[in-house]
Design a protein around this nucleic acid. Structure first.
Ligand SMILES: [Zn+2]
Ligand SMILES: [Zn+2]
Ligand SMILES: [Zn+2]
Ligand SMILES: [Zn+2]
Lengths: 137, 137
DNA sequence: GTAAACACTCCAGCGACTATAGATATGAGG
DNA sequence: CCTCATATCTATAGTCGCTGGAGTGTTTAC
């Protein structure tokens, strides 16, 4: 039996976040002590570790909910789980692509170091005028 | 004189967003028509275009507020503006680095395509066990 | 004059937490 | 058993940058 604090220390998930996950339906409402405090089993510790890891990998609460539901049925085919992960990978790649464009625009923009005034600062002028950019964003 | 709708069409910033920027102090409260509708000058159109472009480049409202304040003083040195842009570039680079790590973990995880069940799905097992990962995240 | 299009304010919601406030429970030492 | 520090409880509000809706009033074109 773990208290919510034990669970928090063991998984690195903050206490309010654990309660939030319960509210969001990622973990079931656990048993309670006589004084109404949450008491968890090992099962729930593992479930929370799964959630934590999936969050660290950037999966949404929604996706994690689906993955947890799938993992309750070990005999079923895993196409859906693979699809969720693949889609997530695609979205990570999109984000990277977008950020790389920003990176190169910003590199160009900040290249104007030196002693000068706001009036002729390339940063300010570049921000005021998208036509100086090399790509859309 | 532009109505809020004109401004919106010309800058691509949605109407509620323009009002939000006003509330956030990025643009001043403009004059009003007799019937209390906002009426903008060209100055404000340019200011909003600046904001839009800076947002597209990922700058925070806070940073944009500072940049706008700086741009009111063309005679001052531009070190601060350069610093804001440089810091932002650094944060974009950090994001890219983090996402690249995720990308490579996810690539490894989704490599398990094929006909199999949830019970032996690598996606599910990898999410349950961070020790199968090659880096921290 | 009338109708369509536009704009007003206020407020709620998104996602994924995080942080308070004020009350109650638990557990270890005496 | 009592005290007290620590832990936990609920409920609510705040974060960021918008976005949408309800319900009402204004402008404009015909
Ligand atoms: Zn400069
Ligand atoms: Zn641009
Ligand atoms: Zn699989
Ligand atoms: Zn991992």
């Amino acid at each position: 039996m773990y208290s919510i604090g034990d669970l928090s220390r063991r998984t690195g998930v903050k206490i309010p976040t654990i309660r939030y996950y319960e509210q969001m339906g990622l973990i079931e409402a656990p048993e309670r002590s006589e004084g109404n405090q949450r008491r968890y089993e090992k099962r729930e510790l593992e479930r929370l570790a799964f959630i934590r890891h999936a969050r660290d990998l950037g999966l949404s609460i929604e996706a994690i909910r689906d993955l947890l539901a799938l993992s309750e049925h070990p005999e079923r085919p895993c196409g859906e789980a693979d699809r969720i992960a693949t889609e997530h990978l695609a979205s990570v790649r999109e984000k990277i692509a977008r950020l790389r464009k920003l990176e190169s625009e910003l590199e160009r923009i900040v290249a104007c170091h030196g002693d000068h005034t706001i009036g002729d600062c390339y940063v300010i002028r570049a921000l005021a005028d998208h036509s100086m950019c090399e790509s859309e964003h």
